[in-house]
């Protein structure tokens, strides 16, 4: 034990800033494998193809300020120059080996988190420039859920700063130094795959469905077999417009036309959503009557007593129901919210 701490384990006594500090990043003599003067390079060079895909670590002296659109190119140039300049004394970017926290589990890799800079840019684009979550998601290759989460958390952060609440900045800095991060690289930013098909519970069953050979059995039919009313996979993906764009590009439609078609698609989608929203609002206005009182409003929602059914136990019925024991003290009841809508 002592010999390990004095020997190869010495590197872990003081964590190396700007590195993940995982066991597998060091060889058995305690040397950082990816350092240029480190001897055992054979394994790494065989994987050098993958290395490019690994997100480059955000340089530590990186510009913390928000990077507006006009300065994108300049920022990228700077980034490149920085990395080439610093190469002599700074650490080279992590290889896939450096991102394995568990030495015996080859398939587990640390996934990068959004850098502070990128989060700031996402918040700015959505809140200040009024761009849709979908657009921002496509531009920076960040999933829509994550964009939403970034906007929510940044809103809270800015609120706290305004109110003068203390922030755990040193903690955040220390953590961000130890995990791989996705830097902001303008429109070249890539964080994750954004168009994965979410697994719908209806599609988790294995179905043997006999159909005639002459029939063209498409994804639409497959969706219908899983559950009637289920949308086909092409429509359940987060960004179906990207598939349309790809199709047009394969058909060699000129780029300007593709852009136009895509803009139309996005506008139509937005109009459809707005129509639904307006309809819901109108319905709400019809059903709910608000009465103003000095301290609060009373909102009267019109309901239908018949919805509780003949026995008064219908699911849609309103009110505390009679003859039902309460389940809330029962074992296994989840009383805290499990998801944020």
């Amino acid at each position: 034990m002592d010999s390990w701490i004095e020997g190869p384990g010495r590197a872990f006594k003081r964590p190396l800033p700007g590195s993940t500090n995982y066991l597998s990043a060091y060889d058995r003599f305690g040397r950082l494998i990816r350092l240029p003067d480190g001897k055992p390079k054979n394994k790494n060079s065989s994987q050098s193809g993958d290395v490019d895909q690994v997100k480059a670590r955000q340089s530590e002296g990186g510009n913390p300020a928000l990077v507006p659109d006009g300065l994108d190119q300049a920022a990228q140039e700077n980034d490149r120059q920085d990395t080439t300049k610093k190469d002599s004394n700074a650490l080279p970017p992590e290889s896939l080996d450096d991102l394995r926290p568990f030495p015996l589990n080859n398939s587990f890799r640390s996934q990068p988190v959004l850098s502070e800079e990128l989060r700031e840019v996402i918040y700015d684009q959505v809140v200040n420039r009024d761009r849709s979550v979908r657009e921002v998601s496509v531009e920076y290759n960040v999933s829509m859920e994550r964009v939403g989460a970034v906007v929510r958390l940044k809103t809270i952060e800015k609120d706290w700063i305004e109110k003068g609440k203390p922030l755990a900045k040193p903690y955040a800095r220390a953590i961000l130094k130890m995990v791989p991060t996705t830097p902001y690289l303008g429109s070249r930013t890539t964080h994750e795959s954004i168009n994965d098909l979410p697994v719908h519970s209806a599609t988790r069953q294995q179905i043997f469905y006999p159909t005639s050979e002459s029939r063209a059995f498409t994804r639409v039919d497959a969706a219908h077999v899983f559950r009637s009313g289920l949308l086909p996979a092409d429509k359940r993906i987060p960004h179906p417009q990207l598939v349309e764009r790809e199709k047009l590009e394969i058909a060699q439609v000129p780029k300007s036309e593709v852009d136009e078609i895509m803009n139309e698609w996005v506008a139509a989608e937005a109009a459809r959503k707005q129509a639904i929203e307006e309809r819901e609002k109108a319905e709400e206005k019809r059903l709910v009557k608000t009465v103003r009182a000095p301290r609060w409003d009373f909102k009267f929602r019109d309901i239908n007593v018949d919805e509780s059914g003949k026995d008064g136990r219908g699911q849609k019925g309103v009110g505390w129901r009679y003859g039902f024991p309460h389940q809330d003290r029962k074992r296994g009841q989840v009383r805290i919210p499990t998801s944020v809508e």
């Binding site: 009373f298 009267f300 929602r301 309901i303």
Partner: peptide, 11 residues
């Protein structure tokens, strides 16, 4: 926005 109280009623 103001605080509110919810009332459901079959008018």
């Amino acid at each position: 926005a103001r605080p509110w109280k919810d009332i459901k009623l079959d008018r």
